[in-house]
Design a protein around this nucleic acid. Structure first.
Lengths: 168, 168
DNA sequence: GGCAAATCTTTTACAGGTGTAATACCTGTT
DNA sequence: AACAGGTATTACACCTGTAAAAGATTTGCC
């Protein structure tokens, strides 16, 4: 059983100050490292399609939702600012992947939907992306994967309640 | 037992296409969401000290390491580009928190160390930061925390081998 | 009913951070 | 002495968030 980076980092801190309660690092440090490593790896299939991950997240959010979404909903769904969503939408619209339609009742809001081309792109890319992710996770056996998923869900529920505030 | 966001997202995808193997999302999606939520929350104590998280990570890496580090090592340690490290070092040096010293044997490399002020700042901030993180994690009982930490370590070892390539 | 204030949604302006690629410099090798 | 490889920095383009602005709707009050 070999140590991961975080275990090493924790030992370094303990050497600096044995009084330090490094417990949270074992969770939060590892989540951050995993996310950083995954982000580097996981974007490979996307780049070949000329998309960034935030762009793909946006397209995916529209694809998996039954009704059309507004820019504000997309911002909340993808954890980004409204301004970032506006810029991404313009870029995606110029590429013919999404379409904006104004609401006729309330002329402040817009509704975003995928073009046929946009939907086709997502439907082609997502299985590819999932296969890639499955390969990355193949080092864990089924039991570990399930256990990890469950514990992460538990944490995520806590974080959403504590931090995320209002959803939906 | 309430569902987390990812469980909802997975159900949405299943409704779009029941053939889709959404397994990887249960892990990777959750890690990304947790990381995003944590990043929003976790930086509060840092901002009050006028530091960003990447800056704090850099200071922490220097603090916890016995010997001095070079900019290149810091880039690898903090998952950022060399250019970003150069800029951060200049900003931190202007604030009197770090010090650069050239190697006398090999004049390409520089060695970075903390000033007394920099070390004092890290030593004051880190316990604060850890207390904050402990509060964020307080919703999980000890058993879940340990289990989650272990599983994340297992995953991280896999990812380091598979993606990270050369460490140390 | 009608007008103004408050609120909401989206977009624009601007400042700041990051990465890629080019540059400058150094070392060791042939 | 030239060259290949390595290290740090600079130049530049891009993306992001905060804050301000523009446009539209609802609310409150007379």
């Amino acid at each position: 059983m070999t140590d991961d980076i975080v275990a090493l980092v924790v030992r370094q801190w303990q050497a600096v100050d044995p009084e330090l309660d490094t417990g949270p690092m074992e969770i939060i440090g590892r989540i951050n490292r995993c996310a950083a490593l995954l982000q580097q790896a996981e974007d490979a299939p996307l780049r070949s399609a000329g998309l960034t991950r935030p762009e793909f997240d946006l397209l995916g959010a529209v694809r998996r939702t039954a009704r059309e979404l507004t820019p504000g909903e997309l911002a909340r769904e993808t954890f980004s600012s409204g301004a970032a969503v506006t810029k991404r939408l313009r870029a995606l619209q110029e590429r013919g992947l999404v379409d904006r339609r104004g609401d006729e009742r309330d002329r402040r809001v817009a509704h975003v939907r995928l073009t046929d081309e946009g939907r086709a792109l997502v439907d082609r890319l997502l299985p590819e992306q999932l296969a890639y992710e499955r390969a990355v996770l193949s080092g864990l056996d089924d039991g570990s994967r399930d256990e990890l998923g469950s514990r992460l869900a538990e944490l995520l529920v806590q974080l959403e309640g504590r931090i995320g505030g209002a959803r939906r």
